[in-house]
Design a protein around this nucleic acid. Sequence first.
DNA 1: GTAATAAGTTTGATTGATCAAATACGATCG
DNA 2: CGATCGTATTTGATCAATCAAACTTATTAC
Lengths: 255, 255
Amino acid sequence: MASRTIENYLKQLWLLEHAVRKPTSGAGRSTGNFVTMGQLSESMGVTPGTTTTMVKAMADAGLARYTPRAGVRLTRAGEKLALHVLRRHRLVELFLVEILSIDWAHAHEEAEELEHVISDTVLLAIDRLLGHPSADPHGDPIPSEAGMPEVQNVSNLAEVKGGTEAVIVRIMDQSREFLTFARQNGLVPRAAISVAHINPGAGAMLVHPRGHSPVSVSLAVAAKFMISTKSAEESKASHRPIAGRRAHRKPSREM
Amino acid sequence: MASRTIENYLKQLWLLEHAVRKPTSGAGRSTGNFVTMGQLSESMGVTPGTTTTMVKAMADAGLARYTPRAGVRLTRAGEKLALHVLRRHRLVELFLVEILSIDWAHAHEEAEELEHVISDTVLLAIDRLLGHPSADPHGDPIPSEAGMPEVQNVSNLAEVKGGTEAVIVRIMDQSREFLTFARQNGLVPRAAISVAHINPGAGAMLVHPRGHSPVSVSLAVAAKFMISTKSAEESKASHRPIAGRRAHRKPSREM
DNA sequence: GTAATAAGTTTGATTGATCAAATACGATCG
DNA sequence: CGATCGTATTTGATCAATCAAACTTATTAC
């Protein structure tokens, strides 16, 4: 099995491969991009030399494909492992928040350690206890054993027509202030909302979260909410809104 | 902070220091005995040379006192750390069995890993969720933050007078068969029992676990149960018997 | 088209944990 | 008392992960 360290490189690599690119270079998300040594060493907090060494080791182990001076990308096998780590991380994170009432931000750090020592048996038990959830407290999707679920019908709230009914699936800003605002207004993952109307002139829209008062949000803010507009899967899944117990601090990085 | 490895040495050292000695050299338990390199390397599964090296490192760190060719023993600081590891281990073990319904034997192995990555925050949450338990599924006492509780009024069931009322606190045989027998007859940690009568001639006694049928056990078997005969603490503590869900396999070693 | 700069790779060293094998003690037996 | 035997310690090596610093390649800048 991959060492703790390798698991972390794999996870980080997957996240970087699937990160949204700079707004300037065209919106939208990419799948399986090359990652440069610089990006990887930066986000792993190690020197570039170390990264080169580790990436070569991963390539030797068949977990990544490495082209010197060009970059690295996960192989099928590497991706599978990476997603398994991510699954453990996100399930544990949700578990900590839901079952142990651990603070959201703190849960992230804990999960960072726990993700490497949770056996399949325990993972299964946690998954069962939580009712096979599909997202962690941030709305980040939890990969299944089979892999990362294809996220269908997901767009961001800023691109939607007036009158749209939707469910918030993910919050892309994890700063404490933003999460606090979002929670106070019922804009949490799994919450059902409807878009009352849009005022492009004012650059704002009126959003109505079910069970809460309508809120006016700027389009910039709306862009931070990923939403799903009605689908067969969604209707089946649990709609109990998660998230939001006590105050949440800013996590070190997205996950 | 001590590394994972050092934590394991500390824990093992504490267990060896407090292990019951060979029956031949007089019964009873000892506190803070010298441990030989042989014992330690044996139980850690490493070569003696490694043990010498590690023990010297621990001595340098002020965690142990080491006399070459004589043995090693924990310092106050070392014992404190060791007990903290043991506390995490046993709380986690109970948590896995009680909350996640993990098989008893499996729980031990899981806890072996988890004990090193559980933060104080999570530990506290687990402790609260479990209602501040004082023993793990085997009845092994869970050290408090202050240290290992002084186990008072504890004797073994074979040494008791007829008519005694007692509570089982610990089972010293962790073989699967024995645990199965014990559980089926209500002889689990925290169960209240009374000794109906003793038949020294037959080498057996009749034990009556509350809520179960009386069982006749040999004195040899009785000796495997550690019991507590009524005390102020006991009466206050929760009396819900723990242990005993599904079948339990034999753990690799006592803990 | 060379020079400067940014990014990536190599090299040599370090740290923690380990082993195998050589060596040193010290107790016991004759 | 000295040879023997079991236990303990040393020594030299290895492996994973890392860093610092030297070196190499591209890519832009002029």
